[in-house]
Nucleic acid binder design. Structure first.
Lengths: 213, 213
DNA sequence: ACCATTGGATAGTACTCCTATCCTACAAGC
DNA sequence: GCTTGTAGGATAGGAGTACTATCCAATGGT
C-alpha cells in the first residue's frame, strides 16, 4: 500500500498524511527506494486512531502525540498496557498538573476504602481541590463525600473497555472514546439533574433568594 | 474613570480593553466628547467577568459573548436571572446541540422522578446518548441508571450559587466558576475512582483479559 | 523513453486571541 | 495661544494550531 491507496482507505487526504508523517504521529512506511515507501494495515489503524482522537474525543495533536508515543513504547504486556491506559486516561480527562497534596483528598481516599497510593488521578483531584480553594469556591467535606460515593458507584461500571481488541491501536481508540463519552455523559446527566432539581424546587421561578427584587 | 485608569484597576492592558470594546464584549463608556469616554465600576466588573470566564473557566470569546449578551438582556427579575443561569449552564458545560429524542433519556427522567419538561440539558443528554450509540460505545440502562442516581444525589448540593451577589455580573461569574469547578471535580473524582477500582481489582496488573499475552 | 505519481519540503491559509503601532483630535499646563 | 501628551479609533502584525496547496526531483510502470 502506497500513499494514495492509504489516503483512499483512510479517507484522509494525502497531504494530511504527509503532515502527520512530518509531525511524527505516523511512523514512516517501509522505504522501497529513495522516493517510495510501503504502508501496511498498522498505518491505516493508526490513522483511524488519530482521526478518532482528533474528531470524536477532540484532542489536539500534542495530546495525540502523547498517546501515540505511549502506544509505540508498549509491547502488549499487561503492565505496559495498563500504563498505556493510564496515559490515555490522564490525556483524555486532562489530568496533568503539578504535584499537590490536600487533606480532603486523603480523607476521601480513606473513607471510600480506595487504595492509598499516589496516582495521576489522585494528584489531579488534589490539585483541583486546591484550585477550588484558591478560586474561592466553597466545598465542604459532606459534598465531597457525596461526589466520591457517586463516583465510586459509577467506577465499577465502565472498566470493561478491554473486550477483545486485536491491536493496541484499536484498544487505545476504544478506551479513549469510551472514557470521553462516559465522562461527558456524566457531565450532561449532572446538568439535567441540576436543571430538574431547580425546576422541581422553584417551579421554574424564584431561584434567587438573596438578590434585589 | 478613563481608559488608562480602567486598565490599571482591572490589570488588563489598554489595548486588550480596546479589543474587547471592538468585539462588543465591553459596553462603550459614556462619551465625554468625540475622543474621550468615561468608564464606571460596571466596566470594571465586566472586565473581571471576562477575565474569569476566559482564564478560569476557559471559555472562548464567542462563548463569553453569549453570556455577556444574556447578562445585558437580564434586568434582575427572578425569571430573567433563572434564564441567565440556564445560559451560563449550557455555555459552561457546552450543552448546545441539535434537538434529539431518545427512549433512554425519557426512561431516566421517568425513573428518577425528574419533571418531564424539555430543557437544553435534557436535549444535550439525548444528543449525547445518540452520539454514543453512533460511536459504538455500549451503554445499558442499568449503567445509565447508576449515572442518573449519582447525578441526582450530587445535584441537590451545588445549587446554592446565589448567595448574596450584589450585581448580576458577580452572580454570573460565581455561577460560571462554580459550575465549571464542580463539574471538573466530578470528572476528576471519577478518574480517581476508576483508577482506584482498577488497582483494587487487578492489583496494578492484569487489567487485560482478552488480549494477546 | 516518457509521463504520471511518489514523497519530501516550503509556503500559504483559516481561525482565534491578542498586541503594537499609527494617527488625529482634544485637554491641560505654561 | 501653543506645546505636550494622552485618549481612543483603526489597521496591521504576531503567535499558536491544524491543515492545505504547490513545487520539485526522483522514479516506476508502460
Amino acid at each position: 500500500m502506497q500513499l494514495a491507496e492509504l489516503s483512499k482507505a483512510s479517507e484522509v487526504s494525502a497531504t494530511s498524511i504527509k503532515f502527520y508523517l512530518r509531525s511524527g504521529l505516523l511512523q514512516p512506511g517501509a522505504r522501497l527506494n529513495p522516493t517510495r515507501a510501503a504502508y501496511g494495515p498498522e498505518h491505516l489503524q493508526r490513522l483511524r486512531l488519530i482521526q478518532g482522537l482528533r474528531h470524536v474525543v477532540g484532542l489536539g495533536l500534542r495530546e495525540i502525540t502523547i498517546i501515540v508515543d505511549a502506544l509505540d513504547k508498549a509491547d502488549g504486556s499487561a503492565e505496559q498496557t495498563l500504563e498505556l491506559l493510564g496515559v490515555i486516561q490522564s490525556t483524555v480527562l486532562k489530568l496533568q498538573g503539578p504535584e499537590v497534596h490536600t487533606v480532603e483528598g486523603d480523607a476521601v481516599v480513606a473513607e471510600l476504602g480506595w487504595p492509598d497510593e499516589p496516582s495521576e488521578a489522585r494528584n489531579a483531584l488534589n490539585a483541583h481541590l486546591a484550585a477550588m480553594t484558591t478560586a474561592g469556591v466553597s466545598l465542604d467535606l459532606a459534598t465531597l463525600r457525596t461526589y466520591a460515593v457517586a463516583a465510586d458507584s459509577i467506577a465499577g461500571l465502565d472498566l470493561d473497555i478491554t473486550g477483545s481488541k486485536p491491536t493496541l491501536d484499536e484498544l487505545a481508540l476504544t478506551a479513549a472514546v469510551g472514557m470521553h463519552m462516559h465522562s461527558q455523559l456524566v457531565l450532561k446527566m449532572l446538568a439535567l439533574a441540576q436543571a430538574s432539581h431547580a425546576i422541581r424546587r422553584y417551579g421554574g421561578r424564584d431561584l434567587l433568594r438573596g438578590t434585589e427584587e
